[in-house]
Amino acid sequence: MVTTFRTKQGGQSIHQAVHRAARRRAIGVGGTRGDGPFRFAVTGAGIALLATMGAIGVFLVSTAIPALRANAANFLTELTWRPNAAEPAFGIGALAFGTVLSSFIALVIATPVAVGVALFISHYAPRRLASALGYLVDLLAAVPSVVYGLWGIAFLVPFMLGPSEFLNRHLGWIPLFGGDQVVGRSMLTASVVLAIMILPIIAAISREVFLQVPKAQEEAALALGATRWEMIRMSVLPFGRPGVISAAMLGLGRAMGETIAVALIFPATFTISLRVLGPSGNSIAANIANGFGEATEIGRGALVASGLVLFLITLLVNMAARFVVARRKEYARAAA
């Protein structure tokens, strides 16, 4: 057997060095047959994914530019959306505001519930029932968005009228719940639908992570006399935190990009209002779905430009989330 030693630069930790040493040993004994093509395949897949992303970016920009050139208004500050007129004037202001506000409210509603659900299945439910209850949550994820849209129109819009009026009457001094007009098809209703839609994905991933917590850590906490909650706070939550954050990130990305359900519920106005109970609200994605049918060439370009903005907002969110995850991971390792 020919022994090949490969030197690599940039080993970071002792763990990795040991790992690599073990592999070199293996190379000495068993050979490396098949390693080359496999490495080629996995690297190729990664590069194909990069190329796809690049193509999306190039296309979005190149299609948006002609429309932005024809725009008579300031794209970033204009509220109205008239790209199909003889003198096109359109801006992202109101749409971006609606997208961010509705998704953020959805995340605030969904994350605590989702973490509770994940903990329930991983640590509270009877062991015999746990996998069945887990399947139930997966079922929530399996409900398609168009079905949530149907359900939202048929059930949630009339149902939300009562709670909305209650919030308006008793918490109206908070600007969010103020205003004279309270309707069913409001920003809040759309946010609730979004929250329901992103809850299962956050819960499912959190649950998977919570289930991976080393049993020894949990048992050590219990052996020291911790109650179940103290055990969860000391061993489960620190271990699972990066997973929960990345799950919430996936959920936020999904909420912002969600189209059909909110397109049915949003009143599709082009104003900026913090009053989430009133008859206003729209989002970039909903506007693309509603506006694409009658869009002219400039109109399509304008919608693509708005899609580009959506893309950039989600990029910022993902980068922020990634930053949090990286910091928390270091913190967790230092504490362990």
Binding site: G46, L49, I56, L60, G257, I288
Partner: peptide
């Protein structure tokens, strides 16, 4: 390369369904 791919997978997670359709 791994960091770049990892970063763009995150970006891709945020690609809204309607934008992938437009693309």
């Amino acid at each position: 390369l791994a960091r770049t791919i990892g970063f763009f997978v995150d970006v891709m997670t945020g690609v809204p369904s309607v934008v992938s359709g437009l693309f």
